[in-house]
């Protein structure tokens, strides 16, 4: 590491020490943001609907009606039925449980690993960074289908594997992004200042560096969630993931895409649900970023 002397110590900006009020202020700012509020509300509605909807519906997600077959939306089936005559609404909500759970949980895993890994590599640099980043290169290069099949052979069909498989690929780019940011921020004046004040490394990383790169982290997280949800459909193809007759958004969209001309509702509703969720997530993410940005409030 090179030691660049702090150029202008006077430039240390506003509160280095965010107190509890930061989170409180952030929450207040978030609530004022209409789009973010919309995102939060609509996400909650979707989550509650997925949790409770299937219980309230008079149809089971696996319940077929072969004589009915694929039918357009009607009073009996609000969103229509699929080719086996199953109610699309209840399948969409039941599948949402899987997709939301996988999307959020796997993303959380990827986020945690990626941020910590990237921050450590970027902050300490040197040999440690080299080893850590070459390991990331190696992970990137592994043949994913082979990796997944092997996982299943070794550990059987465990739903936890789904998270391992997804986590194994999704944290890599996050780690590289965070590392790049940390390497840039750690050379900034206020960090040098904090260092010269004798603050501990962990404190510097998590208190001073991380808050300054929340933007890219939040954005990349909102990018990861849809990726994870669609990846789940591919893993189902390999035999990992949901087994029929249960479904997930990714699988429903994939099936719907193949029938879009004959039975457009099979694509439109799952697609809409998926988009709505992602829009909400992005609104919430953008709002969160703005709310946590200590400087932007002045604009």
């Amino acid at each position: 590491m090179t030691s660049a002397p702090p150029t202008s110590p006077a430039a240390v900006p506003e509160p280095i020490e965010p107190g509890n009020s930061l989170w409180h202020d952030a929450w207040l700012r978030l609530r004022k943001n209409k789009l973010a509020t919309f995102g939060l509300v609509s996400l909650s509605v979707i989550a509650v609907a997925c949790l409770l909807g299937p219980l309230l519906s008079s149809y089971g997600y696996e319940e077929q009606n072969l004589d009915l077959g694929a039918s357009a939306p009607s009073a009996a089936h609000w969103l229509g039925t699929d080719t086996l005559g199953r109610d699309l609404l209840v399948r969409l909500l039941a599948g949402g449980r899987i997709s939301l759970a996988v999307g959020l949980a796997a993303t959380f895993v990827a986020l945690t690993i990626g941020v910590v890994y990237g921050a450590v590599a970027g902050f300490f640099g040197g040999k440690l960074d080299a080893v850590m980043m070459r390991s990331v290169d190696i992970m990137y290069s592994m043949p994913f289908p082979i990796f997944v099949i092997l996982l299943m052979v070794l550990f059987g069909r465990n739903i936890l594997l789904l998270f391992v498989a997804i986590g194994a690929v999704e944290w890599l780019t996050m780690a590289r992004i965070v590392r790049g940011q940390v390497m840039s921020i750690k050379k900034m004046e206020f960090i040098e200042a904090a260092r010269s004040l004798g603050l501990g490394r962990r404190r510097i990383i998590f208190r001073h560096i991380l808050p300054n790169m929340l933007g890219p982290i939040i954005v990349y997280t909102t990018l990861t969630i849809p990726g994870v949800m669609l990846l789940e459909a591919f893993l189902s193809f390999l035999g990992l993931g949901v087994q029929p007759p249960m479904s997930s958004w990714g699988v429903l969209i994939k099936d719907g895409a193949e029938k879009m001309e004959e039975f457009p509702w099979l694509l439109i509703f799952p697609g809409t649900m998926f988009s709505l969720t992602l829009f909400s997530l992005n609104f919430l993410g953008d709002g969160l970023r703005d709310a946590l940005d200590v400087r932007s409030s002045k604009d």
Partner: peptide
């Protein structure tokens, strides 16, 4: 699509800096 989101996020981070 992801590039546009990342660019926006990254720029916002910088545009407020000193």
């Amino acid at each position: 699509a992801p590039l546009s989101r990342l660019t926006r996020g990254g720029l916002l981070e910088v545009l407020n800096q000193d």
